[in-house]
C-alpha cells in the first residue's frame, strides 16, 4: 500500500480515470480496425513525411511486412488498451503504448513545411493530440496505479508471498 501513501485519493482517482480513458481509446482503435475488413495502415503510411517516410515506404512496398504491421497494430492496440483498463502489466502497457503512439506521431508529425493530403481535424503546430497522448501514457507509467486499482495488485501480492519466506531465511 506504499503507492496509496504517496498519493492523495484525488490524485489517485485522476490517474485511474486518465488510465481508463486512454485504455478505452486505444482498445476501441484496435477493435474498430479488427471489425473493418478493409482497414490497412497503408493510407496512413502513404502520407508519411519527415524522418520515418523511408521506413513507411519500405513497409508499403512489401505486402508481407505490411500485413504483419497491420496485424501487430490491431492486436497491439487491443492488448495495450485492455491492459490499461484492467490494470494488468500496466507499466509495460503504458510504456509500449507511449512508444507506439510516438511512432504514429513521427510518421505524420505536424512540422512546419510538411503538407498532408488528408486534412487534420484540428490545428496543430509541432504538437498534436497523438504526441500528448503518448506523453500522458509516459506519465501513467511513471505513476502506476495498476497495483491498487488493477489486476497488478494480485501480481504484487504473489510476489510478496514468494519473497517473504526467502527474507525469513536470510534473517
Amino acid at each position: 500500500m506504499k503507492d496509496n501513501e504517496r498519493h492523495t485519493s484525488l490524485q489517485l482517482t485522476v490517474l485511474v480515470v486518465l488510465r481508463f480513458l486512454i485504455g478505452w481509446h486505444l482498445l476501441y482503435e484496435g477493435i474498430a480496425k479488427l471489425l473493418n475488413p478493409y482497414w490497412s495502415s497503408i493510407e496512413f503510411l502513404m502520407e508519411s513525411k519527415w524522418i520515418l517516410s523511408g521506413f513507411s515506404e519500405w513497409i508499403i512496398s512489401n505486402s508481407g511486412v505490411l500485413n504483419t504491421v497491420d496485424f501487430l497494430n490491431t492486436w497491439g492496440l487491443i492488448a495495450i488498451g485492455a491492459a490499461l483498463i484492467a490494470g494488468l502489466f500496466m507499466r509495460t502497457a503504458a510504456i509500449s503504448g507511449a512508444i507506439l503512439l510516438f511512432v504514429y506521431y513521427l510518421v505524420n508529425p505536424p512540422m512546419i513545411g510538411l503538407e498532408y493530403a488528408m486534412p487534420s481535424e484540428g490545428n496543430y503546430l509541432i504538437i498534436d493530440k497523438t504526441l500528448i497522448e503518448a506523453v500522458a501514457l509516459f506519465a501513467l507509467a511513471v505513476f502506476p496505479t495498476g497495483s491498487i486499482f488493477g489486476l497488478d495488485m494480485f501480481l504484487t501480492q504473489f510476489k510478496k508471498r514468494i519473497k517473504k519466506p526467502v527474507k525469513k531465511e536470510t534473517e
Binding site: 485511474v16 481508463f20 485504455g23 478505452w24 482498445l27 476501441y28 485492455a82 483498463i85 484492467a86 490494470g87 491498487i148 486499482f149 488493477g150 489486476l151 497488478d152 495488485m153 494480485f154 501480492q157 510478496k160 508471498r161 517473504k164
Partner: peptide, 23 residues
C-alpha cells in the same frame, strides 16, 4: 494475516471490470 488480501483491496483491483462491461 500480512499477505491475506482484504475484500476492499480485491474490489479495488477489479475497478477495470465495469469499464470493460460498459465498453
Amino acid at each position: 494475516e500480512k499477505t491475506t488480501v482484504s475484500r476492499r483491496t480485491i474490489l479495488k483491483a477489479l475497478a477495470g471490470l465495469p469499464v470493460f462491461g460498459i465498453f
